[in-house]
């Protein structure tokens, strides 16, 4: 079976990387290959990385409140680049109303604080858009 590749990125300017780092390491424990890009990524950086690394999943962590802007921008660029077989998921502090809008826009899932790693990795395995 091939390795599932996941990009974990922090768009925008907030530096709260605790969750992103814990998730990166925990997904490694689950057998995933995690590409970790660190803080302060632009949407352009993120989509370019997703292409070059041929990832199955893009995971964004935003805690600055600027999630609507960043997700929208990443979705736009994914579309522009014809990326339609990659899951886009997110974590952080996202109000219910925004969450619904993001899902409508095309984000596959938003995980709130307190979500277990197991839940996230199960979601990824079940919803992959590419054959294993």
């Amino acid at each position: 079976m091939r390795k599932i590749r996941v990009l974990i990125a922090k768009p925008g300017l907030d530096g709260h990387d605790r969750g992103a780092k814990v998730l990166a390491r925990s997904l490694m424990d689950e057998g995933f290959e995690v590409i970790y890009t660190g803080i302060h990524q632009t949407a352009e950086d993120i989509v370019r990385t997703a292409i070059e690394e041929d990832v199955d999943v893009i995971g964004l962590s935003v805690l600055s409140g600027a999630h609507m802007y960043h997700f929208r921008r990443v979705l736009e660029l994914m579309k522009e680049n014809g990326i339609n077989d990659v899951l886009l998921i997110g974590g952080g502090i996202v109000p219910e109303e925004d969450k619904e809008n993001l899902i409508k826009m095309g984000v596959d899932a938003i995980f709130n604080p307190g979500t277990s790693i197991q839940e996230i990795s199960d979601f990824i395995r079940k919803n992959l858009r590419r054959p294993l």
Binding site: G12, L13, D14, H40, T42, A66, Y69, H70, R73
Partner: peptide, 18 residues
């Protein structure tokens, strides 16, 4: 706000959305 914390003026393209 985050741009100010990083010493960026609000017209800097990096600050979009923040």
């Amino acid at each position: 706000d985050y741009p100010t914390l990083l010493g960026l003026d609000s017209d800097d393209p990096l600050t979009k959305g923040e």
